[in-house]
């Protein structure tokens, strides 16, 4: 790992100020960034530690919205989100307990790993990503693998989820990494059904719109029997072929419908 200066700002405004410098980067739970630094895939001059900032901690729930501050760990989300059980369950299954004690929702979404769980939840549950500069609907947030619309120095401060009528997340574990080999997050708001898929596409998290339409008019597993996911553009690696991933999307979507 190249050396850097580690700063621990006292409050959010100091953190935002520190991040405006060239070569500065946010450090939240470090569960992705520290391994990245060890591999010398990033070489920031300054790391601004935001994990301990009280202003970025906590969950609040009111009027059908769950608001999670960006520095809240997966473990805290798992244990404290009550009105959105599918989201709490997703957090409870990220990695392992030690990862969940450090990793944060803001870090997960900013990182946009193609196999991460939270991006699928944000996309399926009409989330709004609030940053130090603006509010971004989740539909506009994810650009491609490891890429989002965030500008240099822009910090996610909070994520607001609209609680659906019913929802379920099906994660097919990749047992070595403990990420999702494929994951499907299904959320239903009346006839508006959303199916967000992670772990599968070379372009990162996406919504399976054909399934959404079919499930919007008939919310049953058989409603998607006739649909097939095109294997073109799916990820292919030693853990699974394109065809396997395409097939898993359908299988997991059906399981999610049945679990609702």
């Amino acid at each position: 790992m190249y050396d850097f200066e580690l700063r621990r700002p006292e409050n959010l405004s100091e953190a935002i100020e520190s991040l405006s410098a060239d070569g500065a980067q946010a450090l939240a739970g470090g569960q992705t960034l520290i391994p990245t630094l060890k591999n010398r895939l990033a070489s920031p001059d300054v790391l601004v530690s935001i994990g301990g900032l009280a202003e970025l901690q906590g969950v609040s729930e009111s009027n059908g919205v769950v608001s999670i501050k960006a520095g809240t760990t997966h473990g805290v989300v798992a244990g404290s989100v009550k009105s959105y059980p599918a989201l709490a369950a997703l957090a409870a299954n990220i990695g392992d307990p030690a990862v969940r004690n450090r990793g944060t929702i803001g870090g997960s979404i900013a990182n946009n790993d193609p196999s991460a769980c939270y991006p699928a939840a944000t996309l399926a549950s009409k989330a709004t990503i609030i940053t130090s500069k603006r509010s971004i609907p989740s539909s506009d947030f994810f650009v491609g693998i490891f890429e989002t619309v965030l500008d240099e120095g822009e910090l996610i401060t909070q994520v607001d989820f609209e609680v659906p009528d019913v929802a379920n997340y099906q994660k097919f574990d990749q047992p070595a990494s403990r990420f999702a080999l494929v994951g499907v997050f299904l959320a239903r708001y009346g006839n508006d059904v959303r199916v967000a898929v992670t772990g599968a596409s070379e372009d990162g998290v996406f919504r399976w719109s054909e399934a959404e339409q079919a499930l919007g008019s008939d919310f049953s597993a058989s409603a998607i029997d006739r649909l097939e996911v095109d294997a073109e553009g799916m990820i292919e690696d030693i853990h699974g072929s394109k065809d396997y991933r395409a097939s898993l999307i359908k299988v997991l979507t059906k399981r999610a419908v049945k679990a609702c």
Binding site: S49, G51, G75
Partner: peptide
């Protein structure tokens, strides 16, 4: 009081 991987946290964060 919480289990963490000490290889994935900087000493200065534990101040």
């Amino acid at each position: 009081g919480k289990a963490v991987k000490s290889c994935t946290i900087f000493a200065l964060e534990v101040e």
